[in-house]
Design a protein around this nucleic acid. Structure first.
Lengths: 348, 348
DNA sequence: CTGTTAGCGCTTTCAA
DNA sequence: TTGAAAGCGCTAACAG
């Protein structure tokens, strides 16, 4: 067993006090060059590494931040296209700034409040947290959060309010306008009957995408026709597959479909093939997320690209700022982008 | 600011000493029922939560474990099909056992040793770690690890040795036999020219899969013919795509291909389509990883399923055992499984 | 510029 | 069964 090297050992070897060692470690300006050298040399020689727990205890902060993922069901690798670059970004930025990244993945059968507070936040071993969920967040959770005073950034959700003041900071991306852009682009290609396949109804992104669709469609047709063009999926390939069959069982099916994610678009394309419909000649399809395999489909899938990495990166930056000055900030919304490929075409 | 509640407050309210409070919290047997009740009641009333840093300092352990991901390049969502369930499993198991999960994702341009030790392990704030990488691991790293005495589990890599004793515990999955099984199955379908597309050459799994292929192929043909049937890819869809073109530029191309992952299989299928070859009538294809979209291809992709979740789960279990008793354990290898779908068929 | 010292909040002997 | 008190290793206020 390598025995523990403490600050004391370093101090002795360098012939200074532990206070001086501490100053050197923490970059305190008032240390003589001579002392600093001696200390650094001793540290090197002994292979000394400060004990984090002791530092945390003495300083009252931990340099730990928690990234919490909350969803209804366990991770499905295929649906983490959005989350993963966010995680990578958070990791990159926080490590660079000397923070450790703790994560927790919660399947919220129960409500967030008990889950998150009891199991996680409560351990008081974090300086701040980033919450990544597209589930609705309960009022009670926001209240607990407010009370706990833990600096928090919500990614892709929020902003949230309690008693008139904002709780946490939100970093978002534009779900709304891009859906309308997609719609308008399909219209400009001559499509009049444009369908929409939603994601899981309890996901806020899916709700927003649906709202965007409903509002823009309402400008061009009456509400009932619009209803007929909406099918509720759950983000799975299979639900996209079924949605297409659903649409084409009815009279007057859509000539173009916007899907709330790429997986459903892939399912829809598969169904289209079974129904002997050609994409894009007979049916235009647009997905969401811009997953890698999408560009390798035949035809390559038109999709919407979310700036995941930036979301994580800027979110982490905001969090550190908040930890420093305690202020919550205005929500930030990052732009999304329509990536056009061959799965859409002019109406013939 | 919610002011801090310490053990002292609880002790005062319950009319006991802090020692008793501590005993109650840690489930020490020698506490009177009366005292226990009073303490629990006070804890509840005050909303007391023990300070982790203080606990760590006093107990000399942190209840933190680090999960380190190491690779050459940043996360590509599409290639994390293997890692994600592992992460989920680790999270599930460790949280259940009162450990926090810290993660770090390293892009190892430089070598592991400096990267991992300097930035991460060195912080002494973890009780153990799980290393997830398919890169080769340097001797120097193993040495540092041995010296650090930090309980470690390697997932999908190892076992490693230093001076005759095993360093860390390895939990593996069977890459080798399953490739040979796949080969034999293709032969039983009448295929004689069976090709192989490797993953990134620096990844150990790819190396093993290639070795398995080479050895089994050697039983049926001379080495040069075998060479012709191997193409080096890099796990990307695109490299699978190119590999197929490569094979079919030559005389006597394969009638069946095994790919080191599903993404390359997808790329290969795309190229096959461009070349007007039908899968499986003209060409049988087998992938690896059993990714979700694979079953939605036309034809659905035959693939090899890796028990990722179990890998993470059992790895975490091993780690906690090792933390408890300090013993390293024999490597464990979990079985993989061939999932047969329509991308393969009898030679006609 | 530097040494001394009093905590940080909790655990754990040691006595009682 | 319990209280008192000595740390765990580090930081920071205070003297000097």
């Amino acid at each position: 067993m390598t025995q523990k090297i403490t600050q004391r050992n370093v101090a002795d070897l360098a012939n200074v006090s532990t206070g001086t060692v501490s100053r050197v470690i923490n970059g305190h300006p008032l240390v003589s060059e001579e002392a600093r050298k001696a200390v650094l040399q001793a540290i090197e020689q002994l292979g000394y590494i400060p004990n984090k727990a002791a530092q945390s205890l003495a300083q009252g902060r931990t340099n730990n931040i928690l990234v919490a993922f909350l969803d209804k069901s366990p991770i499905l690798p295929s649906t983490w296209q959005y989350e993963l670059p966010i995680l990578q970004a958070i990791n990159d930025y926080l490590r660079l700034n000397n923070y450790s990244v703790q994560i927790t993945i919660h399947t919220a059968d129960s409500n967030l409040d008990s889950v998150l507070f009891k199991d996680v936040m409560s351990d008081k071993s974090i300086d701040g947290m980033m919450i990544l969920t597209s589930l609705a967040i309960e009022e009670s959770f926001i209240r607990s959060l407010e009370e706990s005073r833990i600096p928090t950034v919500f990614i892709g959700n929020g902003p949230f309010w309690h008693d008139g003041n904002q709780v946490g900071t939100a970093i978002l991306f534009d779900n709304f306008h891009i859906i309308q852009d997609a719609y308008n682009m399909l219209r400009s290609l001559g499509h009049e009957r444009i369908g929409f396949i939603t994601g899981s109804d309890e996901h806020i992104h899916s709700q927003i995408r649906l709202k965007a669709f409903t509002e823009i469609a309402a400008k061009h047709m009456d509400p009932e026709s619009c209803e007929d063009l909406i099918h509720h999926g759950d983000y799975s390939i299979n639900s996209g597959f079924e949605a297409l069959y659903h649409f084409f069982k009815k009279a007057d099916p859509p000539t173009a479909i916007i899907c709330a994610n790429d997986l459903m678009a892939i399912g829809a394309m598969k169904a289209a093939k079974e129904l002997h419909m050609r994409v894009p000649q007979d049916l235009s399809i647009i997905g969401f997320d811009n997953i890698e395999v999408g560009s390798f489909y035949s035809p390559p899938l038109t999709s919407i690209k979310v700036p995941s990495y930036d979301l994580g990166r800027q979110g982490a930056e905001l969090l550190l700022k908040t930890i420093k000055d305690g202020k919550t900030r205005e929500p930030i919304t990052l732009p999304t982008e329509l990536v056009i490929r061959n799965s859409i075409s002019k109406m013939v």
